[in-house]
Design a protein around this nucleic acid. Structure first.
Lengths: 108, 108
DNA sequence: AATTTTTGCAACCAAATAGTTGCATAATTA
DNA sequence: TAATTATGCAACTATTTGGTTGCAAAAATT
């Protein structure tokens, strides 16, 4: 399909999925699909789809118990995003103004 | 349209856009649209579209000079992603195993 | 002045995405 | 056993997205 970091970034790029992920993270216990969808205005199936996306990114783990499926968030994949961003930190205080000085130089 | 962090996350969620952003970040000078598209296999218009997305997210700045448009990357918006991730760091070493213990508790 | 180069805009296309509804099924409860 | 509940799967729709091609216009070069 697509590489890991792409999956993670796409998963959290959607605001509704960030909300769902957040709700799971701050929940004191695992939540069933029905419990989660109760907190959102979209349909249960809509929530299920979002959860699947989060699961494929490794951000949610699911275990079945009886007829219920309990979900819990796992923040660890976000480490990869932190690492990706880390590389660019070295640029974020120097980059601004580069365009200006580049263009100034051109007009000399 | 959509909130700022969503724009930034969507911008970098696409692998091709990450490549373009990276190419711009490590470039020693600003690059024109033609110079950038020369580095990628997709069409110039394809590149232009990606750059527009990056620009709307604040990750690229563009200045026109004559008929050329010079682009430079700005990593600063990535700070917002770092901040977003930061909140979840507190969970990423404790979260694993929560589902297991939750389920164990249920069977008691 | 004629040609070439750099670009934007618009139209188009295929695939992916976010969402829905309807139905079937397995587990639980009455 | 009958009714209810939790869920998955499939089909469908509308919108967005990543990409293309064609054309026009402005700037630079010859």
């Amino acid at each position: 399909m697509q590489d890991n970091i792409t999956k993670i970034l796409k998963a959290i790029a959607d605001p509704k999925r960030r909300e769902i992920f957040h709700a799971l993270i701050i929940a004191s216990s695992a939540l069933s699909i029905t419990q989660i969808s109760g907190q959102f205005e979209i349909s249960r199936q809509g929530v299920t789809k979002h959860i699947k996306t989060l699961e494929h990114a490794g951000l949610v783990e699911i275990t079945s118990m009886g007829r219920e499926r309990f979900c819990i968030a796992d923040a660890k994949p976000l480490k990869q995003i932190k690492e990706w961003v880390k590389f660019y930190e070295q640029f974020w205080d120097t980059a601004l103004g580069n365009l200006g000085s580049f263009l100034d130089a051109k007009t000399d």
